[in-house]
């Protein structure tokens, strides 16, 4: 049925595509090229948009800058702190939700609600929950005789606070996807397995887990990429600072600071390229891995 394109059919299609071409040309394709170029600008005048020198200086700077190393390290901690727990908790909740009918919708609503809320607004609420003297969390801890923690001003606790909030905000999304996955598993597998004498744990291990692996893989990858890009909640939680003593400085926050506060466009662009390469690498791993190891 597929016909070969002709001049006429092509022209028609281009008219339909024109608005997309214009906007994405200016605000997606051009900036992609420009960002790569910009990362090699070493002398740049923002006002005149004139570049007087190119080179690898920005990358050398990143290579040597302890703050960038810190940002990479923090981002990695964030990924490791957020992703496995989010996937695990949401899997457990989805499994539980899958077993009940009554009130199911109400529970889903509650678990998913954080996902639709403004990160900035809810981070503000969390900063109030984390308040050292009057916050709810420290009050609850005091009931167990635990001393008040200065969550947001103690460099040791800033990251755990950020991780807690991020997990809370992301659970709903993963739960929804797990529920879809569970829904797609054919019930006859379980029936046959039960007849064959498999117990609940064996059915979970040999049916649910393998058949769910594409979803698990998907939410892991989206989770990792999402965690790499965290910015809003840091900004709002720590009131426009990357945490006490840079303790919550992430790659995107670093990019923002270099760009917006320090006006070092070249360095900011270079850190953006690094972020892009990392995400590209994760995506490529996803493609390879999902072909090889995910059981359908």
């Amino acid at each position: 049925m597929k016909k070969k394109p002709t001049l006429k059919s092509s022209l028609t299609a281009y008219v339909y595509l024109l608005p997309m071409f214009i906007i994405s040309g200016v605000f997606s394709l051009y900036p992609i090229v420009k960002s790569f170029l910009m990362s090699f600008y070493t002398k740049y005048n923002f006002y005149t948009d004139k570049v007087s020198a190119y080179g690898f200086d920005n990358y050398v700077f990143l290579w040597k800058d302890p703050n960038f190393h810190l940002a990479l390290k923090n981002t990695l901690i964030l990924v490791l702190g957020v992703v496995p727990l989010t996937v695990l908790i949401s899997l457990v909740i989805a499994l539980m939700l899958n077993h009940i009918k009554w009130l199911n919708g109400l529970f889903r609503t509650a678990y998913f609600l954080p996902f639709v809320t403004s990160t900035v607004a809810i981070a503000l609420v969390w900063s109030w929950l984390f308040n050292q003297d009057y916050g709810l969390f420290n009050y609850l801890l005091s009931l167990f005789g635990i001393h008040a923690i200065d969550w947001l001003n103690d460099p040791h606790w800033a990251m755990p606070a950020l991780i807690m909030m991020t997990i809370w905000k992301g659970l709903g999304f993963d739960i929804i996807l797990f529920l879809v996955g569970l829904n797609n598993i054919d019930a006859t597998y379980y029936k046959v397995a039960t007849i064959d004498g498999a117990n609940a744990w064996q059915r979970f291990k040999h049916i649910t887990l393998p058949l769910l692996s594409p979803i698990t893989f998907l939410v892991t990858i989206t989770g990792i990429i999402g965690a790499f890009k965290i910015f809003d909640q840091i900004y709002a939680l720590f009131n426009g600072q990357p945490g006490p003593g840079q303790s919550a400085l992430t790659v995107v926050y670093y990019l923002y600071e270099k760009f917006y506060t320090d006006w070092k466009y070249g360095i900011a662009a270079a850190s953006g390229v690094v972020l892009f390469l990392v995400i590209l690498l994760i995506t490529l791993i996803q493609f390879r891995y999902s072909r090889k190891h995910v059981h359908y």
Partner: peptide
Amino acid sequence: TMMVPGEMLIISNFVTVS
């Protein structure tokens, strides 16, 4: 292009917008 993080484009988009 969907793979490119939007955060990376913010710098040059800001230059364009300015």
